[in-house]
Nucleic acid binder design. Sequence first.
DNA 1: AAATTACTGTTATTTTAATAACAATGTTAA
DNA 2: TTAACATTGTTATTAAAATAACAGTAATTT
Lengths: 207, 207
Amino acid sequence: MTRKLPDKTVERLSQYRRALLNTLSGGKHHIFSHEIANLLHITAVQVRRDIMLIGYTGTLRQGYDVNELIDIIGKIIDTREGQKVAVIGIGNLGRAIMGYFSGKRTRLNIVAAFDSNPDKTDKIYAGVPCYHSDKMMEIIKNESISIAVISVPGEFAEKVAEDLTMAGIKGILNFSPKPLNMPAHVYLQEFDMLTMLEKVAYFVKKS
Amino acid sequence: MTRKLPDKTVERLSQYRRALLNTLSGGKHHIFSHEIANLLHITAVQVRRDIMLIGYTGTLRQGYDVNELIDIIGKIIDTREGQKVAVIGIGNLGRAIMGYFSGKRTRLNIVAAFDSNPDKTDKIYAGVPCYHSDKMMEIIKNESISIAVISVPGEFAEKVAEDLTMAGIKGILNFSPKPLNMPAHVYLQEFDMLTMLEKVAYFVKKS
DNA sequence: AAATTACTGTTATTTTAATAACAATGTTAA
DNA sequence: TTAACATTGTTATTAAAATAACAGTAATTT
């Protein structure tokens, strides 16, 4: 549809949408670029530029129609049919992820969780069934799950990623501290909290 | 000491160090830039450039001395005295963070956790005492804790951040989906998993 | 009705990050 | 001994992101 948007713009679109949904439930139907900017603590130019990139245009002196903007963003970042997500590893982190998502109305559905510990499998967490890892490849394939969140300890991340790739996964969000290597057709986002905490420590030290 | 390094270089330094510690425990004492690069799945030039920026130099044809490099990175990202960290919000996420850290790093110590639920307070999690939020400001001040990890639900994040600021915090890692606004002297790193998952979904859709 | 104001949308510039190019040099091979 | 090689360190170039500058315009004020 639209040509590929800049990475950072996509991140902000997700945040705009959440902020706008909030705005809407507060009964506000129009919003200025500088108001959106304030909600996210960024600049108004940045907001207008992002909105320009997705091809929406507001009205002068009235700003943007909140509903329309939410819709447009949805058309860009959601698929019509929705996408299925699996969470691999039901430790604290895995459960946190599922908790964050449960009830959030979105086109991203967490439909399965996996763990290698039999005490944790065959149960429901935040509405999501947890299966044993042995069944992972099969279920991913059969259910055509396209996105996986890896929240297993570092030692297992690589093996999990390989299996996921073989099962045909399309995108991975990797919370483990082990950097992964994926074939080009699998989109990989690393998300490493140890690194981020050390980074904060560094900049605190500097300032 | 060194002048301020680029953001991304700092992130990678943290990852280099972890990879190098691994290498070392595997009994390897020298390493080439392309080997480090392979561990992180980035390019060798990137590695050499980062190492150049921190002012370390390897030896031709032998590569880098693993111990020395670990030390140098430590001098850059750690402080001599160490830094104290608090985790605010002991849900699944908070516990995941503490679990990841326990035992891992000596210079970055999680020394306190806080929660507003009395069922969770006055207990030890992963070796860290959890206090009631009422005591947060006092303890942060008295213990001179400089870094906070916010893992409370979005609704509470803003208030927590304000209190932390007043208590004199220097850096914040914000896991909540609510974007925060901090005075310039507080270093803020947002870390929003919903955004990241939606981003993965977008790029999966595009490819 | 003219000037001013408060916005949007777009282009231009700057900054930051990544990549490429290559010079320097000790090591090995011929 | 000379040529080829493997590796580092650095500068040059390109790409991505953020910021600044500004043109356009409907509403409001004078």
